[in-house]
């Protein structure tokens, strides 16, 4: 992601103090444990010009759920209101703001795209990642039938309900296999981890990559 953004002429900064957006605790109902972590995020990033997140899920947490977390905390709520317009999911940012002609990725593979749920449904990112993939030289994009179906990760769901989560992943894997693609691309590392684990368990030699890796590739 850093490579891509620098190629596009942006000055990229990584703040080592950053940790987590707080979603795991929030989604498990532990608001009191999530709040200080979200506050830490605000401390680290409040003065940043633009915050680019390589995950649809984290982006959505910040943009859609921080306000709920700080509903009774006007000071932090004001910080949330101020930061939300500056938070972008990676593909969303590229398509909205960047001069994509500066980018000339090449990825000579047959690729299928997995819609991660929060990017698709909470951020409405259906076309953006696909438009970016279509700009990549020698990349063949094949849609899988169950592109919009959840991979089954779902945070703690993946371990609390491992059998269901695993069954969902296998359905997704079947759909991936039907495309004949050699690579699966997505926006969220959690989906990628789930799919990578399920593909590996099934003994399938298919690579899982983040969109940023494809856009940074010049092979």
């Amino acid at each position: 992601m850093v490579d891509v953004l620098e190629q596009l002429g942006y000055e990229v900064e990584f703040r080592p103090a950053q940790t987590c957006c707080a979603q795991p605790a929030f989604n498990s109902g532990f608001h009191d444990q999530a709040r200080p972590v979200a506050e830490h995020f605000l401390d680290v990033f409040s003065d940043a010009e633009t915050i680019i997140v390589p995950s649809g899920s984290c982006t959505s947490m910040i943009k859609h759920h921080y306000a709920e977390l700080f509903a009774n905390d006007p000071k932090n709520l004001a910080r949330v209101d101020s930061i939300v317009p500056r938070v972008w999911e990676f593909s969303q940012f590229l398509l909205n703001s960047a001069d994509l002609d500066k980018l000339s990725p090449r990825f000579p593979h047959k690729v299928t795209y997995h819609d991660s749920c929060h990017a698709l449904r909470e951020l409405k990112l259906k076309d953006a990642p696909r438009l970016l993939l279509k700009r990549v030289q020698d990349l063949e994009l094949v849609e899988m039938e169950a592109a919009e179906e959840c991979c089954g990760f779902g945070g703690t769901f993946s371990v609390k309900f491992a059998q269901i989560s695993g069954a969902m992943a296998r359905t997704k894997v079947d759909s991936i296999l039907q495309t004949g693609a050699t690579h699966v691309v997505s926006l969220d590392s959690s989906c990628l981890m789930q799919l990578r684990g399920a593909l590996s368990r099934g003994g399938h030699n298919i690579e899982i990559v983040h969109l940023a890796e494809v856009l940074a590739s010049r092979k």
Partner: peptide
């Protein structure tokens, strides 16, 4: 309520 991946479909 926990038996969901919160996929939002």
């Amino acid at each position: 309520p926990f038996a969901s991946s919160l996929c939002g479909a």
